[in-house]
Amino acid sequence: MAQQHLDPTDPTTGPVTGDALAGYLRAQATEFLRALRLHRETGGASGAEGTVDAALALRRSARRISASLHTFRPLLDAEWSEEMRPELAWLSGTLALEHACEARLERLLLALHRLSGAGVLPARTDGVAGRRAASPAGAVEKSRANGVAVGSRSAAARGAAPEGERAGGSRGRVGTAAPETAGPPSAPATPERGNLTVGAAKAGALLERQLTLARTRAHSTALQALGSSRFHAVADKVALLASEVPLTAAATAADLRPLARAAQERLTDAVTALPLVTAGHPYNAEALIHGLSPDPAPHPQDAPWHQVRLLLRLHRYAVEVLRGGNSTMDVRLLAAGQALNRHRDASEAAAAAAQAARTPRIAPATAYALGVLHADQRHEVEAARFAFQRAWQNT
Rank of each mutant, 00 (worst) to 15 (best):
Q4P: 12
D7M: 08
P11I: 00
D19S: 01
R26Q: 15
A27G: 06
R34F: 09
A35S: 15
R37I: 09
R37M: 10
H39T: 03
T42D: 07
A48C: 03
E49D: 07
G50H: 04
D53I: 10
A55D: 15
A62F: 03
I65F: 02
A67N: 06
L69M: 11
L69P: 02
H70N: 11
F72Y: 04
D77P: 00
D77M: 00
E79G: 04
W80A: 11
A96V: 03
L97P: 08
L97G: 10
H99F: 14
A100S: 03
C101G: 10
E102P: 09
L105I: 06
R107T: 00
R107M: 03
L109D: 15
L112Q: 14
R114E: 15
L121V: 08
P122N: 13
A123K: 09
R124I: 13
T125I: 01
T125M: 04
D126N: 00
A133K: 12
A134F: 05
V150F: 12
A157D: 05
P162I: 03
R173C: 10
V174L: 11
T176A: 13
A177P: 07
A178D: 09
P185S: 06
S186E: 11
A187M: 07
R193G: 03
L196H: 03
T197C: 11
V198M: 11
G199I: 01
G199R: 02
A200K: 02
A203C: 01
G204M: 03
G204K: 01
L207H: 06
E208G: 14
E208D: 13
A214Q: 14
T216D: 15
A222I: 02
R230H: 10
H232I: 10
A239E: 14
L241G: 04
L241C: 10
S243P: 02
E244N: 07
A251I: 04
T252V: 14
A254D: 00
A254N: 03
A254C: 01
L259E: 02
L259F: 04
A260W: 05
A263G: 04
Q264K: 09
V271N: 02
T272E: 11
T272G: 09
A273L: 09
P275V: 00
L276K: 05
G280F: 12
H281A: 12
G291K: 14
G291T: 11
S293D: 15
S293L: 05
H299E: 15
A303C: 04
V308L: 04
R313D: 06
E320N: 12
R323S: 02
G324Y: 00
L333M: 13
A335G: 13
Q338C: 07
A339E: 01
E348A: 06
A350R: 15
A356H: 02
A363S: 11
P364D: 05
A365N: 12
A365Y: 07
A367M: 00
A369Q: 03
V372P: 06
L373F: 03
H379D: 10
E382P: 08
A383P: 06
A384V: 07
F388W: 07
N394V: 01
